[in-house]
């Protein structure tokens, strides 16, 4: 209980910091309230939802694929979403944001299914092939997107989605993320099912679970959250990889108990990275993905080399 309190306290401090850090000095500006409502609060909320959502997606995907080294942003789902946005931009530039969102989710789901189909054919004795294939698969889709964007003179446009960061988040331009938050939160209702799927197909069928259906539900949830994140803030790699691995090492993989911790840790880590990214080269910004990549990798390596303790 005490731990929960301190964790909540730390997150609150981070949120206050995030509201306070920026180019405009809130104490000296008469329009401070507007700055808060239009920019700082939306940005902080966007960071929290993104961090939590991507961490949850990573945890679920690792269960569905039965491999701890995959995450949506590096194994095709994120790139699939970018492909969807590119297609809308090319063929229906006037389409509403809702159409964009649906199409990006659909292409993200399609490329996730493709990844799963490839992974199923890999020898189970070579678990490291899975993330490698994922990176190559995602890389190919990403390269395709970049090539088409280059041909269509849309490179600058596409860059916004390929490299995620939060400086563009303003009131009225991030609200889609609430849908991602709802989908991510709803996935908690299937936490048991995802954990059972993580034990393998035989174990799932033995317990009477509709294996294919649960995998599909999981992929849809992952694709929607990933696509909405790419549409609003862009691709942010590693969150879905590092955070679930840290949590799984510390608390195991019974998602019913670990998913909330995973979501919380993802939110806190990404928020801390975003604040750091805003401060390091003040008044310029370093993209959150870069900062997170460095911190997250450090924490991850440290955890790998620390002897595991038994969960009490």
């Amino acid at each position: 209980m005490l731990r929960v309190f301190w964790a909540a306290f730390a997150l609150l401090i981070l949120c206050l910091l995030s509201l306070g850090v920026g180019v405009i000095d809130l104490t000296a500006d008469a329009k401070a309230w507007q700055v808060l409502v239009i920019s700082r609060v939306p940005r902080t909320i966007a960071v929290l939802i993104t961090g939590a959502g991507l961490a949850i997606c990573g945890a679920i995907m690792q269960m569905l694929v039965r491999n701890r080294f995959v995450e949506p942003m590096t194994s095709g789902t994120g790139q699939g979403a970018a492909l969807g946005i590119l297609l809308v931009t090319l063929f229906a530039p006037q389409a509403s944001i809702f159409v964009k969102m649906v199409l990006a989710s659909a292409t993200a789901l399609g490329s996730s299914l493709g990844f799963l189909a490839i992974v199923r054919r890999l020898p189970p004795t070579q678990p490291l092939l899975v993330p490698l294939v994922g990176i190559i698969y995602g890389g190919i889709i990403g390269a395709g997107v970049t090539y088409v964007a280059f041909q269509a003179d849309l490179l600058q446009y596409i860059d916004v989605w390929m490299n995620g960061e939060f400086s563009g988040v303003l009131q009225g331009r991030y609200e889609l993320l609430w849908v991602a938050a709802i989908v991510a939160a709803a996935s908690y209702f299937a936490a048991d099912q995802f954990a059972i799927v993580g034990m393998g197909r035989v174990a799932s069928v033995n317990l009477g679970l509709n294996y294919g259906q649960v995998v599909l539900i999981g992929l849809v949830a992952i694709s929607v959250v990933t696509a909405l994140t790419v549409v609003t803030v862009g691709m942010i790699p590693f969150v879905g990889l590092v955070v679930p691995n840290i949590i799984s090492r510390l608390y195991g993989e019974n998602l019913r108990t670990t998913l909330p911790v995973t979501a919380f840790t993802g939110a806190a880590f990404v928020l801390a990275s975003d604040i750091l990214g805003r401060l390091l080269r003040y008044p310029y910004e370093i993209p959150v993905g870069t900062v997170f990549g460095i911190i997250g990798t450090g924490v991850f390596l440290w955890l790998l080399y620390v002897p595991r303790r038994h969960v009490p």
């Binding site: 039965r66 189970p124 004795t125 678990p127 048991d192 954990a195 059972i196 993580g198 034990m199 393998g200 035989v202 174990a203 069928v205 033995n206 317990l207 009477g208 679970l209 509709n210 799984s248 090492r249 195991g252 993989e253 019974n254 969960v311």
Partner: peptide, 29 residues
């Protein structure tokens, strides 16, 4: 399938990559 799951159980082959579940979690499943 879920009706059959109360009549017949199959023990999965000892998983090559054991999930990080506690013994209690596993038995509860």
């Amino acid at each position: 399938s879920d009706v059959l799951a109360r009549k017949l159980a199959i023990l999965p082959q000892s998983a090559d990559a054991a999930p990080r579940l506690t013994v209690r979690d596993l038995v509860s499943f």
